[in-house]
Design a protein around this nucleic acid. Structure first.
Length: 847
RNA sequence: GCCCCGGUGGCGAAAUGGCAGACGCUGCGGACUUAAAAUCCGCUGCCCCGUGAGGGGCGUGCCGGUUCGAGUCCGGCCCGGGGCACCA
């Protein structure tokens, strides 16, 4: 009987769907487990790289449900976003139609992979039933002052014709389309995530089951800095200028001050400057530069001709303007300590400003201040304050503490904490998103849409003409509304929300997705959340995961949820890459067009370069699952995908490697057929051989531990080993292997669910997915009959002896001395203490 | 520049401080076949000695340290990947 995966798989997929096996009653008793894969953007077709993500989640889900947990595994769609709108412009399909079509195809693909989702909980963020609550959430934040409209320099993507959040700008380019982002001064909607900076930072310490890497990235992004705000008197102004520094201990070395060109005091300071026009011109030029251009240009500055008084030395220091001082961070003004800050040092050298050393090495080593090539940055006890009056001789940390106390005493400033994090810009000048529920009334100004009027429905009948701004703004019926306060005419806000708003709370909605009275039921949500296991790509380390942590805290503060962290355990799977080919001009060559000559890739007469990279259509290196499943079955793809490498690692897809997984499943299949035949022949069962039983319990023990640790690759290799053991035994007495074989099927089920389900029923058992449990290892039966003891003398292997298990000391001694090649010996790790024989040190190592 | 994470056969990778390379791919040899595919069996880190059974040496990026014993722990380098980047 041949292994025919295709027939088996469609049969069971249909059966699982009909029986709704994954549907969960959220009020049912039992030990809950909330599994979640990050809900995908419905971009259309899924390739094997996407598959890794969902297969991994499904394997884990099946494992947990076999362990008796009430496991919820929902799936939905992050369905708003730019690609749908671009498709509409390019191909004349409505974004909604395009999105829903893609969702249909992706659902089919999930089914073909044998993935069990609770489809009764399905949601799509583009439907009014969902974005209604997105708008409701916005209003709650608005009420609490956490959503506000403000004017600020923002990132503008000229390609996508919209503003972007800081998190969506990568190396000065748009995350989505790679166009160079421009700075524009615009009035926009923000969420006040900075109000939660301290809690978002502190909360990271409680996330013990998150990858360190992700926590570190978030920590860097939030950028908590401890320091001090200090006022410097400025004779030319009526008020002092406040600076922020993380190194107040170096204040005696502050030899000049630098302001951002945007600093509010600048116009006054340069008002009577002889080169005022030139400086103004320079300021305008700097303001119009993108961050990228500023950095490329290097440091540039202008002297204002005015001075500030260093509050500790009492000396006047020049005030400069500098393009490297950021207006948005700190106070937009810095004290420059060129001796101990690299940027200040470079600036001082460039403009010939004085450098004064005020920290020296604790080691007593002297510093050569005449030939400095870089700043001496002592951040810890390795440095002590020098030339610094009251703090002279203090190690840096102590000096910081003391000087802050002095600053506060004198009333010229205070110790402060600053964050790099900036408010989350959530408005987008695009159509396909959640309308922001706000109105502009000539009389009442900015007016929120009353909750009972929600949802503000996104009109579907809009023209998609291309690049002339947001089509929503041209929809008269949408734009013109009535002011709920005065009853007069009002205009609707036409900006829509960043889709990251949609995804920052969807995990709470999955519990009660059809509730049309409220966003969710707090009691039920508090039972099911936090999510026990969250799975997704590392690309969301900052964006989605930070926003979700923020919004969850706001929900907590509204009294809607009891927890502050939405995801207890996080796992980031690695990408699947595939070799692709480029011609000498750099264009990608479809794999089908590559010819091989002397082991080298060619197209026509040109030799090609092989490259390994992310699968994408533009690279022509996508492996679609269809053919693969047609030929080998979804179980093979699942097993191969999990076996290929540790799941957190990037892995290169190998078409040859797939065959190994297929052969393995084939062997398991044929072994099963042989056992079933033997049982059917009335062959006496007989006792399972001890060695097989032992291997079974050892394997159960090992595989259980490995799956819990996400070590799917070694779980599968363990099962291969075990199956090889069974394969060797099957010739002797197949009928005696029923139990050990069933254990193999049980452990293999999360990886190859269809085949194991089929064999399970061929063995006459009840439906697997509904009844079977994960096997439990018996430690007593794992014990070996004998133990091999390696005898080492001075680290060299001298021989081996075998004694019955468990080994006792006397037997080991006797056996070792009886061994012809061993005259002396000593200690091992587990049984014996170390023993010294005259002149030699010998070890016993228990294996 | 700062901060992380890696470096083991031809390839993907295993290895609570205890016989490095499990498991799989590739390759080679064989069985089956008219033939091929598929399948099954054997070998497969490198070098040397031996006709053979077998034996010996070297091996986890480099240098050093701890230890009876190091891929694993410690110190210093080299190389690769990732994150942040005028954040004061």
């Amino acid at each position: 009987m041949q292994y025919r995966p295709t027939e088996i798989e469609s049969k069971w997929q249909q059966r699982w769907a009909e029986a709704k096996v994954a549907e969960v009653d959220v009020t049912a008793p039992g030990e809950k487990l909330y599994m979640l894969n990050m809900f995908p953007y419905p971009s259309g077709d899924l390739h094997v790289g996407h598959g890794r993500n969902y297969i991994l989640g499904d394997a884990l889900y099946r494992f947990f449900r076999m362990q008796g947990r009430v496991a919820l595994n929902p799936m939905g769609w992050d369905a708003f976003g730019l690609p749908a709108e671009n498709a509409a412009i390019k191909r004349g399909i409505h974004p909604r139609e395009w999105t829903l079509g893609n969702i249909g195809r992706m659902k089919q693909q999930f089914a073909r992979w044998g993935i069990l989702y609770d489809w009764s909980k399905e949601l799509a963020s583009c439907e009014p039933e969902y974005y209604h609550w997105n708008q409701w959430l916005f209003l709650q934040l608005y009420k609490r002052g956490l959503a506000y409209r403000g004017t600020a320099p923002v990132n503008w993507c000229p390609q996508d014709q919209t503003v972007l959040a800081n998190e969506q700008v990568i190396d000065g380019r748009c995350e989505r389309c790679s166009a160079i982002v421009e700075q524009r001064e615009l009035s926009q909607w923000f969420f006040k995530i900075t109000a939660y900076a301290d809690r978002l930072d502190a909360g990271l310490d409680t996330l013990h089951e998150w990858p360190e890497k992700v926590k570190l990235m978030q920590r860097n992004w939030i950028g908590r800095s401890l320091g001090a705000d200090v006022d410097f008197d400025v004779p030319a102004l009526e008020h002092p200028i406040r600076i922020f520094t993380t190194r107040p201990d170096t204040i005696f070395g502050a030899t000049f001050m630098v302001l951002a060109p945007e600093h509010p005091d600048v116009p006054k300071l340069i008002a009577d400057h002889p080169d005022r026009e030139a400086i103004d011109e320079w300021i305008t030029a700097v303001r119009n530069q993108t961050n990228l251009e500023r950095q490329e240009k290097g440091k540039e500055g202008r002297d204002t001709g005015k001075t500030a008084i260093n509050p500790f030395t009492g000396e006047p220091i020049p005030i400069w303007l500098g393009n490297f001082v950021l207006p948005q961070y700190g106070t937009g003004a810095i004290m420059s300590v060129p001796a101990h800050d690299q940027r200040d040092f470079e600036f001082a050298r460039q403009y010939g400003l004085p450098i004064k050393i005020v920290v020296r090495p604790a080691s007593g080593e002297t510093l050569d201040d005449a030939n400095m090539t870089e700043a001496f940055t002592f951040k810890d006890e390795s440095g002590v304050a020098a030339n610094s009056g009251p703090i002279d001789g203090m190690p840096v940390p102590k000096a910081i503490e003391t000087i802050i106390a002095l600053i506060e005493e004198r009333g010229i400033g205070k110790g402060t904490v600053r964050y790099r994090l900036r408010d989350w810009l959530i408005s987008r000048q695009r159509y396909w998103g959640t309308p922001i529920p706000m109105l502009y009334c000539d009389k009442d100004g900015l007016v929120p849409v009353p909750e009972e009027q929600l949802p503000v429905t996104l009109p579907l009948d809009v023209p998609f003409t291309g690049r002339e701004g947001n089509p929503l703004a041209k929809h008269e019926a949408f734009v013109n509304a009535t002011c709920p306060q005065c009853g007069g005419p009002a205009k609707r806000e036409t900006d829509t929300m960043d889709t990251f708003v949609d995804s920052s709370w969807y995990f709470t909605r999955f519990i009660t997705p059809r509730d049309d009275q409220k966003i969710f039921d707090s009691a039920v949500v508090n039972r099911w959340l936090p999510v026990d296991q969250y799975i997704g790509g590392i690309e969301h380390a900052i964006l989605h995961l930070l926003y979700a942590r923020f919004i969850t805290r706001t929900l907590h503060d509204m009294g809607l949820v009891a927890f502050e962290e939405p995801f207890a355990r996080l796992f980031n799977q690695g990408m699947i890459t595939k070799e692709g080919y480029r011609d000498p001009h750099g264009s990608w060559v479809p794999i089908a067009e590559v010819e091989w000559r002397d082991g080298k890739p060619y197209r026509g007469q040109t030799e090609l370069t092989a490259e390994v990279g992310k699968m994408s259509k533009s690279r022509y290196n996508v492996v679609p699952p269809d053919e693969l499943i047609e030929k080998f079955g979804a179980d093979t793809e699942r097993v191969y995908t999990l076996f290929i490498a540790p799941p957190e690692k990037e892995a290169a897809w190998s078409d040859e490697g797939v065959i190994g997984a297929y052969r393995f499943l084939g062997r398991v299949w044929h072994m099963g057929v042989a056992i079933i035949e033997a049982l059917g022949n009335g062959q006496p069962g007989g006792d399972t051989p001890r060695a097989v039983l032992r291997k079974m319990h050892q394997t159960i023990d090992a595989v259980t531990k490995r799956v819990e640790k996400f070590e799917f690759n070694t779980s599968i290799s363990g099962l291969m080993e075990y199956s090889n053991t069974l394969g060797d035994a099957v010739g002797a007495n197949a009928a005696s292997l029923r139990k050990p074989y069933e254990a193999l099927l049980q452990m293999l089920h999360p990886f190859a669910p269809h085949m194991t389900e089929e064999l399970w029923s061929m063995l006459g058992n009840e439906e697997f997915v509904l009844t079977s449990r994960w096997p439990v290892a018996d430690p007593a039966l794992m014990q070996e009959d004998s133990v091999v003891i390696a005898v080492q003398v001075n680290g060299k292997l001298r021989g081996q002896v075998e004694v019955p298990a468990p080994p006792d000391e006397a037997t080991v001694f006797a056996a070792v001395f009886a061994h012809e090649r061993i005259q002396t010996w000593v200690s091992g790790k587990e049984i014996v203490k170390r023993v010294y024989v005259p002149g030699k040190l010998v070890n016993l190592v228990v294996k």
